[in-house]
């Protein structure tokens, strides 16, 4: 994870929180928990799916469903296939979600059965509410991401910035963060202090869940523009 904060051999940011994108389902509405990203295209989910409106999320889901190993290194031909795949998903999509709580609301109201690229916070929230939900482990791997802190080169008080970051990654603070939001903490010292049930549910103490996942990678501007254009095209054709 720390590698993602490194550019040209220099460490630029310290990881803070991490989590997945995976498929979140209401087990009382959906007979089988999906086993592959391709399951999102299941016609049984027609009008019952909520996806994030982020172009790169949808790009990655389509790429993995098509069996491309690395969603962040795709050829133009593969991109054309991905776009067609994203278009084919549209009939299933009922709504978009902007953050975990919005997705949780959509699922708990019963409007949405499947959260397409859900974060662990929505899963945790729904479990805490007592709803029957499952968080899939697609065979292609869950997508995972990490956020962190960096210090601007123009920072006036670097010591203060360090103190702030130290406080943010302190085990106690990160344990509270796990309990409150249901995301992973980049500081593993926090795990013994956090709610054991949440840790076990998300397998936060098992490094294997991270190793089995596919991390978001930095994108070039051209890549990002192409992903946005493809996703906007797909949506506009509705």
């Amino acid at each position: 994870m720390a590698d993602l904060g490194r550019f040209d051999g220099k460490q630029y940011f310290v990881p803070w929180d991490w989590g997945f994108d995976s498929i979140l389902v209401r087990t009382d509405k959906v007979a089988q928990v999906p086993t592959s990203w391709a399951d999102l295209w299941n016609p049984a989910y027609k009008g019952k799916l909520s996806m994030s409106d982020m172009p790169d999320y949808n790009h990655a889901a389509a790429a993995l469903a098509l069996g491309f190993k690395d969603p962040w290194n795709t050829t133009p031909e593969q991109n054309a296939q991905i776009k067609a795949k994203m278009a084919a998903l549209q009939p299933n999509i009922l709504a978009f979600w902007g953050d975990g709580t919005e997705l949780a609301q959509q699922i708990s109201s019963g409007d949405v059965w499947v959260g397409g690229n859900a974060w662990p916070d929505a899963y945790t929230l729904l479990v805490q509410e007592g709803l029957p939900v499952a968080y899939a482990k697609p065979k292609e791997g869950r997508l995972s991401w990490v956020c962190g802190y960096g210090i601007s080169a123009k920072a006036k008080d670097v010591d203060l910035a360090h103190a702030y970051i130290d406080a943010m990654i302190a085990p106690k603070a990160m344990a509270a963060f796990i309990d409150e939001f249901g995301f992973g903490a980049a500081n593993f010292d926090a795990l013994p202090l956090a709610d054991a049930e949440t840790v076990a549910r998300l397998e936060l103490d098992d490094p294997k869940v991270i190793d089995d996942s596919i991390f978001y990678a930095p994108l070039t501007e051209a890549q990002r523009d192409a992903m946005v254009a493809a996703w906007d095209d797909v949506k506009a054709d509705q």
């Binding site: 409106d53 172009p55 946005v228 996703w231 906007d232």
Partner: peptide, 12 residues
């Protein structure tokens, strides 16, 4: 929404 996606997602 298209304008917003250019500003926030594409950073264009």
């Amino acid at each position: 929404n298209l304008v917003q996606s250019q500003f926030q997602k594409a950073m264009n």
